[in-house]
């Protein structure tokens, strides 16, 4: 474990905590795409099927449980909580996310490290994670206004992806047989999706203004 990977995991964790805080404090999920959250839940469930069979470290196992539980809690709040559910921007959250699931599954069946159930689920989760933010970005673009906590949420998620790239560069130079192609190419695609958001986030920060995305 290097500092970039740890910092990446922590920003990932912070992003989820910020989202939970937003929902808990404001009893509202406006500006949050339920589709993106459901895709993330699927990503974690598919990737961590090895949670009881593959032991890497206590850190890994705890983080896996935290990611699965927190994402399921968010989905549950958005679907099941009487007050929170009313603030969901259903008419703005219309991205056809089933296409993303289908495309990721097909790609996982074609490109994987080994043709086994777990490896295909792993590749599927990597591909799906790369594009899972799309419904969220489309929702923000449509609504134009981004509230503070939602902006922080997407910022921390993007930071996590950026730090993971630094982690791979570090591992590439320090580990003899670091196999990484599927994860790294998908990770680059995923990070590139944030570029536009980061540009406007930086502008709003520089001008000390509220974050607004152009229509």
């Amino acid at each position: 474990m290097n500092i970039f990977r740890f910092a990446g995991d922590m920003t990932h964790l912070i992003s989820i905590l910020v989202l939970l805080l937003k929902i808990y404090a404001t009893k509202s999920c406006s500006g949050i795409s339920r589709k993106t959250q459901e895709l993330y839940a699927l990503v974690f469930l598919a990737r961590y099927v090895d949670i009881f069979t593959e032991f890497i470290s206590v850190y890994n196992t705890i983080m896996k449980i935290v990611f699965i539980a927190s994402t399921l809690a968010i989905v549950w709040c958005m679907r099941g909580h009487r007050v929170v559910r009313r603030s969901y921007d259903k008419e703005l959250d219309t991205f056809r996310h089933y296409f993303l699931i289908a495309a990721s599954l097909v790609l996982a069946l074609l490109v994987h490290e080994k043709f086994t159930f777990q490896e295909i689920l792993w590749a599927f989760s990597i591909y799906l994670e790369a594009v899972a933010i799309l419904p969220q970005l489309v929702l923000l673009q449509r609504s134009g206004n981004v509230d503070n906590l939602t902006g922080q949420y997407v910022f921390f998620l993007g930071a996590y992806r950026g730090l993971y790239i630094l982690n791979w560069i570090y591992r590439y130079f320090t580990e003899p047989h670091f196999s990484r192609w599927i994860a790294c190419v998908s990770g680059l695609v995923q990070t590139a999706l944030y570029a536009d958001f980061f540009y406007y986030y930086f502008l709003s920060w520089k001008n000390n203004a509220k974050l607004k995305l152009p229509a």
Binding site: I56, K64, A183
Partner: peptide, 10 residues
């Protein structure tokens, strides 16, 4: 996962 694998990441 094999040593130096990206499967040891989250």
């Amino acid at each position: 996962p094999p040593k130096g694998s990206s499967h040891d990441e989250l």
